[in-house]
Structure formats: C-alpha cells, structure tokens
Computed example of a mutant assay.
Amino acid sequence: MKTDLQLKKEVLDELDWDPSLDAAAIGVEVNEGVVTLSGHLPSYAEKLAAERAAEKVSGVRGVVVNLEVRPASVPSDEAIANAARDALQWHVHLPPDAVKLRVEKGWITLAGEVEWGYQRKVAERTVSHLRGVTGVTNLIKMHARVAPADVVERIEAALRRHAEREARHISISMKDGTVTLSGHVGTRAERLAAVGAAWSAPGVGAVVDNLELG
C-alpha cells in the first residue's frame, strides 16, 4: 500500500504530466489516501482535468476539490450564454431546443428534458469547456419512461463486453430509474466504463457510483 507521501508525489507528477494544466497553481495534500486539491485555475475545464488527473493515480481513495476558477479574461454572461446555446444546438446527440440555460457570473445552470440519461451528461460536458465558465449546475430531467425489466442484465452484458474480469467484481441494482454501482475496480478507466455503461441503458435517470478503486 502506498503512503500518503508517495501518493502526493505521484499526484503532483500526474498533474505536471497533463499539458492542459498549470500544475504550479495547484496545491496537493493527502490524508489516508484522500487527496485534497486547492488553489485557483483560469478555467472550469482545467478544474475538471485536475480532478481527473488525481483520480487516475493508483491508490487514491477519494478526491476533494477545493479549486477556485478565476478566468484570466472574463467574457460577459451574455457572450457565454450565446456560446453555450450554439454549442448545445450543434451537438448531434442533443435534440434542438431540448436544453435551456441560464448564466450568472459565469456559472451555467442547465434545465429542460431529454430522452436519455447520457444526454444529460453530454449537455453538461459540452458547456463545461467553454471559455469563461466558472461552474455548471445540471437540472436537466428525463422524460418519464419505464425502464425495461431486464435493464440490469443489459448493463451487466455491456460491462462484460468491455472487461469480463472486472465485471465480476461489480454489483448493479436499480430502483425508480436510479442505478447504483458497488464493488471494486482496478483503474479509473474501468470505473468510467462501468458508469458509462449504466448511463447508456434505457430508462436510467441517475447513476450512483459507489465503486472503489483498488
């Protein structure tokens, strides 16, 4: 098992390895395997990238993000809203006009209704990387639809297609449109694959990720 000191060094190395990040602007502390990131970055996209970088390191049990977004140049809320609206309209996986948005001091709030759970994630990811965005709140809802009776089996089959060995260590349950994943995975990539498979299933409105790394 890695010590907190080892984890801190590896997280710092991973942050420094990512060309999209200014690692010098990020402070790292580790306590019993839980990493805390602090400091300020010029974009929300970099904040997300820093969190992903820390999660990639083997042995990290959790990540606390205390990073503040301070854009170097601050577009007006109107400019951000127009850019976000255009990005959503042009995205092939989002129905036209299905997603509404509001911007306040760079913070985007998404609302509306979509057919699939994965479309909620697509909308959030689309606006998260725009210049001047300081954060995103996703209030998009799904149209009420009954999940197929075999939805858990479908998710399990998708996981086996991705990585059969890892699928054996993941437990899946579903209630009222919410899928809960529990168990263990070896890497962050396996975790993302499991969560992605759950989001892609019909009738899924939320995914609770209780998977542990290691």
Rank of each mutant, 00 (worst) to 15 (best):
R191P: 01
A50Y: 00
V185H: 07
G205W: 02
R160L: 08
A201P: 00
I172Y: 04
V103L: 06
K56P: 01
L12D: 01
V136E: 01
L213C: 09
W116P: 01
G196S: 10
A147P: 06
N66G: 15
L48G: 02
A167D: 02
S73G: 02
G183M: 08
R102G: 15
V122E: 01
A50L: 00
K105C: 12
I140S: 05
V136Y: 00
L139Y: 07
D77R: 13
V185I: 14
T180C: 10
K141Q: 06
G106R: 03
M1S: 14
I172Q: 00
D18C: 06
R120W: 03
V133K: 05
S73R: 10
V57T: 09
V204Q: 00
A194E: 03
G27K: 11
I108L: 08
L101D: 13
L15C: 04
H162V: 13
H129V: 12
R168Q: 12
P71D: 03
K56T: 09
V179K: 03
S73V: 15
V122P: 00
L88R: 04
E113F: 13
I140M: 04
K9F: 00
R102V: 15
V30S: 04
N210T: 12
A23H: 08
D150K: 13
A163V: 05
E51G: 10
E78Y: 01
A72T: 14
R165S: 15
Y118H: 11
S58R: 10
V195L: 06
L88Y: 05
P95I: 11
A144T: 06
Y118W: 15
A50P: 00
V28E: 02
A158T: 05
L94A: 11
V127D: 09
S182D: 09
V30G: 04
G59L: 02
G186P: 09
V57I: 14
N66Q: 13
N138I: 07
G196H: 05
Q119S: 09
T180F: 02
V92I: 08
T3P: 08
V133Q: 13
I108V: 15
K121G: 14
E115S: 11
V57P: 01
A25Y: 00
W17R: 12
A72W: 05
S43K: 00
S182A: 12
L139Q: 15
V133L: 14
A54Q: 01
I140E: 02
I170L: 04
S128N: 12
G196T: 08
G205D: 06
S182Y: 03
E156I: 13
M142G: 04
L101Y: 03
E153D: 07
L211C: 06
D150V: 12
H143F: 08
H40W: 14
E32P: 01
A198D: 02
R125Q: 13
R191E: 10
L12G: 01
D4W: 05
S43T: 03
L110W: 03
V151N: 02
A198L: 06
P202C: 10
T3V: 07
V152N: 06
T187C: 05
T126P: 03
R85F: 08
E153V: 08
V207F: 07
K141P: 01
M1D: 12
A49W: 05
L130M: 03
G39I: 11
V34W: 00
K2S: 07
K100M: 10
R168C: 09
Y44T: 11
Y44K: 11
T3A: 11
E78T: 15
A189V: 12
Y44L: 15
L130E: 02
T180N: 02
Y118L: 11
